[in-house]
């Protein structure tokens, strides 16, 4: 692998944190100064062997609550399939870190590790907590500038809060993402405790502003190129029974709006990365179908 193009503008500069040969390619972690989040951010990038000779499509993976860039790359077992299909996988962190905001580390489902992929409008979060812009704009630019990517071929997937992130990215940007899938996504955050806590904190009490980040609401008004959404959900997921995920609400809207979804309720599986590991190949294949079309 060539060394990253460190001679780009300084704000685009990347620092390699780690690099490990993996599935014939490389699993790397980089650090950079984010303009959007105004802090140092780490992200993981898997470069398949094909990236040594040509441009590859990119799948963005959005992790769930409490995760860093590490969880997915160490637990999901995505690299073999990514190598097979020639897909670069970019897995960013889940929130700004070390911004010194009061209360940012107080709870596991708000603040650090819980950015919810929104652009906060409320103090004290609005300066740093701009994960939506980070993952849809800054990070893709950075990736395209530093890696052999095909900027027109990107897709998005994620788990839990990241599944919510993936769905809203696709629904808010018709045509931008060639494919979308999710594992146990928070489908209707306005209606669940996690979402209500996060949205009221980041977006304020006006619920109408929440709608812009709610997959179920966004699906109801979606208009754009045909989507093909693959969702896997563990039937024994404690957060499903705790009504944090609410997939039925999304399915009802998609059925009504004729947005194609295949939703698979996997018996016996919980909310963990063991569940993700079990079905990640199906998802990468799903992305490859559209990314390599």
């Amino acid at each position: 692998m060539r060394t990253p193009h460190l001679f780009y503008r300084s704000k685009m500069a990347l620092t390699q944190v780690s690099s490990n040969k993996c599935a014939d390619g490389f699993q790397k972690v980089f650090e950079h100064d984010s303009t959007e989040l105004k802090c140092k951010m780490k992200f993981a990038v898997y470069l398949p062997p094909k990236a040594e000779t040509g441009k590859c499509p990119v799948m963005y993976w959005l992790s769930g609550l409490t995760c860093t860039e590490q969880n997915f790359i160490t637990k999901a077992g995505s690299q073999l399939a990514a190598a097979e299909h020639g897909i670069i996988i970019v897995a960013p962190d889940t929130s700004p870190r070390g911004c010194g905001i009061e209360g940012e580390d107080e709870s596991w489902d708000f603040g650090t590790g819980a950015g919810f992929y929104v652009n906060a409008t409320q103090d004290p979060w609005k300066t740093n907590y701009r994960m939506y812009s980070y993952i849809t704009e800054e990070l893709p630019k950075l990736i395209n500038a530093n890696f052999p990517t095909d900027p027109d071929r990107i897709s998005v997937s994620g788990h839990s809060m990241g599944g919510h992130g993936a769905l809203i990215c696709a629904l808010k940007n018709p045509g931008k993402y060639k494919a979308v899938s999710a594992f146990a996504p928070i489908c209707n955050p306005m209606q669940c405790p996690w979402g209500q806590k996060a949205f009221s904190g980041y977006l304020g009490s006006d619920r109408s502003t929440w709608e812009a980040y709610d997959a179920t609401v966004l699906a109801a008004s979606y208009s754009g190129p045909q989507l093909d959404i693959l969702i896997d959900q563990g039937r024994d997921d404690q957060f499903l029974s705790a009504s944090q995920l609410l997939p039925d609400n999304l399915i009802a809207v998609c059925s009504e709006k004729k947005i194609p979804v295949v939703f698979r309720l996997q018996p016996g599986y919980d909310h963990s990365y063991f569940f993700i590991y079990s079905f990640i190949n199906d998802h990468i294949k799903h992305h490859a179908k559209y990314l390599n079309a």
Binding site: R235, I251, C254, K258, I259, V261, F263, L265, Q266
Partner: peptide, 20 residues
């Protein structure tokens, strides 16, 4: 209430929903 799809073999089907 809805359209149900099964993928049956040996009388067993995975539980899945198809929106369209």
């Amino acid at each position: 209430t809805r359209h149900k799809y099964e993928f049956l073999h040996k009388g067993w089907s995975p539980d899945l929903r198809i929106t369209v």
